[in-house]
Amino acid sequence: MSSAASVREPDDAGLSLIELIVAMVLTGILSGVVVMILVNSWTTQQDVTTTTAATNEGQVFASSIERAVRNAEAVSVSGDVLQVRTRIGGVVDCRAFRFVPADADPATEPLTGDAGFFATGAAPLTWPGAWITEKVSPIGPAYFTLDATTVTYGFQIATESAPVVFQGEIAVRNAFAAGGSPCL
């Protein structure tokens, strides 16, 4: 036997334990990065969805308030309720806009914000109209204030990221009566 025949060639037919461990660690790191990217994308998409929904609901609510007050014949602010007798399209109509505090009892106040028409004596929970389905809170001490011929409103809608703020000041175009109950 020659010495060359007794030297064995290295066996490259498989993976060593070290190579296998390195491959598993690299696969784990790459998988972790991919999972983090997917989770962050999903979370961002949830934030955008809730912010968009809150923005849409708030814009509908705010534009309803502005349209009713701009054409008002009588306006009353009482607590978290704005009542307006308005003339839209030549028809006199009563509209009320009401906010339910964010900390309200969900058993008695299932919706946290609402606006809409109401009939004399109708319970506020039966008012049809635009609804805000997220938590609503005032900006400042009240949702509504009435000063001579100007109604000011301010509210914010909670979202998963940051609250969406709505505020405005509406001057009445018509001669109108302030105070009392314009819709009784």
Rank of each mutant, 00 (worst) to 15 (best):
S2E: 11
S3D: 08
A5E: 15
S6W: 05
R8D: 07
E9C: 10
E9F: 14
P10H: 10
D12N: 11
A13Q: 13
A13T: 15
G14Q: 08
S16L: 00
L17K: 07
I18Y: 10
L20A: 08
V25T: 14
V25Q: 06
L26I: 13
L30H: 05
S31Y: 05
V34C: 07
V34P: 03
L38A: 13
V39W: 03
N40G: 12
N40L: 06
S41C: 07
Q46R: 15
A54N: 01
T55V: 02
T55Y: 05
N56H: 13
N56D: 10
G58W: 05
S64V: 05
V69F: 01
R70Q: 09
R70N: 08
A74R: 05
V75R: 12
S76N: 12
V84Y: 01
V84L: 05
T86H: 09
V92R: 10
A96M: 06
A96W: 03
F97W: 04
F97Y: 15
R98V: 07
F99E: 13
A102L: 04
A104C: 00
P106E: 08
A107M: 01
P110I: 00
T112H: 11
G113I: 10
D114T: 08
G116V: 00
F117T: 14
F117Y: 14
F118M: 02
F118N: 06
T120P: 07
A122D: 03
A122Q: 10
P124N: 11
L125R: 13
T126I: 03
W127K: 00
G129E: 00
G129C: 05
W131K: 14
I132G: 05
E134D: 14
V136I: 15
S137M: 09
P138M: 04
Y143R: 13
F144Q: 12
D147F: 08
D147R: 09
A148R: 14
T149K: 10
T149I: 09
Y153N: 02
G154A: 07
F155Q: 04
I157P: 11
I157D: 14
E160P: 00
E169P: 06
R173Y: 02
N174R: 04
A175P: 09
F176K: 02
A177H: 08
A178I: 01
G179L: 06
S181P: 04
